[in-house]
Computed example of a mutant assay.
Amino acid sequence: MLATANNSLIAGRTTIFSPEGRLYQIEYAMEAISHAGTVLGVLAKDGVVLAAEKKVTGKLLDLTGAKEGGYGGSGEKIFLLNSNVIGGVAGLTADANSLINHARTIAQRHLLTYNEDIPVEILTERLCDMKQGYTQFGGLRPFGVSLLYAGYDPQYEFQLYHSDPSGNYSGWKATCIGANNGTAQSLLKQEYKDDIEVKDAIGLVLRVMSKTMDSTTLGSEKLEFAVLTLDPETKKPKAKIYRPSEIDALLQSEGLKKEDEEMKP
Rank of each mutant, 00 (worst) to 15 (best):
C128W: 06
L111K: 11
D153T: 02
D153S: 08
K131Y: 01
R104W: 07
Y169Q: 05
T105Q: 12
F143W: 05
S163P: 13
F137G: 15
F137S: 14
G139D: 09
S163W: 02
D129I: 13
P142D: 08
L147Y: 00
Q155M: 14
P154D: 09
L112D: 09
F137W: 14
G133A: 14
L127Y: 04
Y149M: 12
S170C: 06
T175L: 06
L111F: 14
F158Y: 06
A174H: 12
C176K: 07
K173A: 15
D153H: 09
D164S: 15
G139P: 05
F158L: 10
R104V: 06
E121Y: 02
G151D: 00
G167T: 04
T113A: 12
G151F: 00
L127I: 07
I118H: 00
P142N: 07
P119S: 06
M130F: 07
S146T: 04
E157R: 13
A174W: 10
K173T: 15
L112S: 13
Y134I: 11
R141H: 06
L127R: 03
W172Y: 10
E116C: 13
L123W: 01
V145K: 04
T113V: 14
P165C: 12
I106S: 01
Y161M: 04
L123V: 05
Y169W: 05
T135S: 00
M130C: 08
Y152P: 08
G167E: 03
I118V: 14
A107M: 08
L112K: 12
R126T: 03
Y161V: 00
Y161N: 03
N168F: 15
Q159V: 03
F143G: 01
G139Y: 10
G133W: 06
G133H: 12
K173Y: 15
Y134P: 07
K131G: 00
Q155P: 12
A150P: 06
P142I: 14
Y149W: 13
Y152T: 06
Q155D: 13
G139R: 05
R109V: 14
R126L: 05
R109A: 10
R104F: 13
L148H: 08
L147R: 01
G144P: 09
L112E: 12
R104L: 08
T175S: 10
P142V: 10
C128Q: 02
D164L: 09
R109S: 13
Q155T: 14
S163A: 11
A150Y: 01
E116R: 14
S163T: 13
I118C: 02
N168W: 13
P154W: 04
D117S: 05
E157D: 15
I122W: 11
L140W: 07
Y169L: 04
E125R: 05
I118Y: 03
T135E: 06
G138Q: 04
P119D: 05
E157I: 10
S170M: 12
L111D: 05
L147S: 01
K173M: 15
Y161K: 01
N168E: 13
P165I: 11
G133K: 09
C128N: 04
Y134Q: 11
G171S: 10
Q108Y: 13
T124K: 03
S170Q: 12
I118E: 02
Q159P: 01
W172M: 06
L147E: 01
G144Y: 04
F137L: 15
